[in-house]
Amino acid sequence: MSELPEIFRVLAFVGGIMALVGLNAAFSVWLERKVAGHIQRRIGPKEVGPFGIFQSLADGIKLMSKQLVVPAKADPVLYRLAPALTMITAVMVFVVIPFGPALVARDINIGLLLIFAIASVNVLALLMGGWGSNNKYAVISATRAVSQNVAYEVPMLITVVTMVMIAGSMNLNTIVGQQQNLLQWYIFPWNGSLLLPVSFLIFFVCAMAETNRAPFDLGEAESELVAGFHTEYGGMGFGLFFLGEYGHVFVGCALASILFLGGWQCPFGWLPGIHWLLLKTYLLVFVVMWVRWTYPRTTLYGLLNLSWKVLVPFSLAILVLTAAMLKVF
C-alpha cells in the first residue's frame, strides 16, 4: 500500500495546478482590466461584486455558454487541437514551479530545462491555431509570433545559462534555497556577476516577448490583424487561448522571481512560503500590465532588431563576463 499516498499526492497536485491556472487567469483578467482602467483614468469593472471582482467569473460563464463554431473552411482537427495544446503546455510547466520548500509537484533536477522545453511547444500551438483557422490575418499573425518567439528564445536561454552557471544547479528549489534573504538575491551584482541586474532586465523583456505581451504583442496587433491567431475563435476556444496566455505570463513572472528574487524565501527571513512567491509573481505581473498600457506597440522590425542586435550581444557578453568572474573569484 506504499504507493497509495503518492497517487493522492499526484491527484492533489493535478487538481491544485488546474485550479491555480483557472484562478490565475480569472484574477489576471480582472487585474488587467483594473490596471488598464486606472492607467487610462477610468475605473474599470465595478458592477459584479465588490470592485468588480466577480467580473471574470461572469465572463467565464458567458464564454462557456457560447456555442463552439468551427469555420466551414478551417482545418477541423488543427482548429480544435490548438487551444487544447496551449492549455496543456501552460499546465505542464507548472509541474516544476516550487511554491514552497516542499510544495512542488515534481522536484526534478532539470526543472528549468523542463519549463523551456514545454514552453517551446506552445509556439506549435499558435502555428496550428493560426494555420488551422484558414484566415489570412491568423496566418500572418502566426508567422509573426513564431519569428518573435524564436528571436527571443535565444537571449532568454543564454541568460538562463548564466544563471545556471552562478547557481550551479537547474533544480529550481535549489536555486531558491541559495537566496535566503534580500542580500543574497541573484538580482544584486555582488552575488556572482557584476551585470546581474542587466541579466534580470533581459530575462524580463524576453519573458514579456515570449508570452506575446504588449509592447511585443505583434501576434495579435488588433489595429492591423483583427485579433491575430485567434481571430476565428469564439467561446471557450478563445477562452482556452486566454487561460494559456495568462498561465504563461504567470510562469514567466514566477520564473523571474525564482531565479532573481528568491522565490518563496522572505526578503527578511520571516515565514518563507507560498505567499511570498505569489506576492513577488503578481508584483511582476502588475509590472507587465503597467508596461503594456504605457508603451505603444513596436514594429516587427524594431522588435526583431531589439532581440538580435541588442539583447543577444548583451546576453552573450554577460555570459562570457560571468564565466570569467566565476573562474577568477
Binding site: 523551456f116 517551446s120 506549435l124 502555428l127 496550428m128
Partner: peptide, 22 residues
C-alpha cells in the same frame, strides 16, 4: 527526453511549419 522535446518538437517542427507557411 526534454532535449528531444525542446529541439525536435519545439524547434525542428516549428521551423518546418514556418517554412511551409511561408
Amino acid at each position: 527526453a526534454l532535449m528531444q522535446i525542446l529541439i525536435y518538437a519545439g524547434a525542428v517542427c516549428v521551423a518546418i511549419v514556418f517554412a511551409v507557411m511561408l
